[in-house]
Computed example of a mutant assay.
Amino acid sequence: MSELSSDVLEAETPADRLASLGITLPASPPPVANFVTHVFEDRLLYLSGQGPREADGRMHRGKVGADVSVEEAYAHARLTGINLLAVMQEALGDLTRVRRVVKLLGMVNAEPDFADHPAVINGCSDLLVEVFGDKGRHARSAVGFGSLPGRITVEIEAIVAID
């Protein structure tokens, strides 16, 4: 995670921080089944699970702890965070409307003996703190699954408080 002072974070917008990280948000990934990418309820934005989808549509697949390393899966979780940000941007029109990232549920397609799920999902958590500062710090669950849709390595969903 980058070491940014709180003064710098207050002065910069999430778009500025994305640019300084060299991140251009892709188009919001379309739903892969009968659901929507997000739902507003009061001042909360619920984001459906996203996966490690590259801008060209390619998905990262495999079993973490078997054919995918923790470092690779961390990068996949970071990419998934970028896709969550793309959905937020599309839903809100401006990421400055994010009051706080409230909660993440991080799911890891892991072999049965794998035990480092939090280190994988940190890829997304670290990104959200880099982009939103303290507003990006969130409650979180990081859990393992025997499989995920399409054999993707990670899937992450989020709840975001908005202005």
Rank of each mutant, 00 (worst) to 15 (best):
P52R: 03
D7N: 09
E54Q: 15
V108I: 10
E71D: 11
S141E: 07
E72L: 08
P149I: 07
P52K: 01
P31D: 06
T80A: 12
R97N: 06
T13N: 02
P112K: 03
T24K: 08
M107E: 13
G62T: 10
S69Y: 08
G123R: 01
S2M: 05
V129A: 13
Y46H: 12
P149S: 11
V36P: 00
A75C: 11
K135T: 01
L92K: 09
S48A: 15
C124H: 04
R58L: 13
C124I: 02
S28Y: 02
G57N: 05
Q89E: 15
D42N: 14
L148M: 02
V101Y: 08
A91G: 09
V64R: 07
D56Q: 03
A142M: 07
F132P: 10
E90A: 14
Y46G: 00
Y46N: 00
P149M: 04
P149N: 09
M88A: 14
G136A: 02
V102G: 03
L127T: 03
M88C: 15
K135C: 10
E157F: 01
E10H: 10
T24F: 00
F114Y: 15
M107C: 11
V98Y: 05
P30T: 12
F40L: 10
E12Y: 01
L9E: 06
N122V: 03
A110M: 08
Q89R: 13
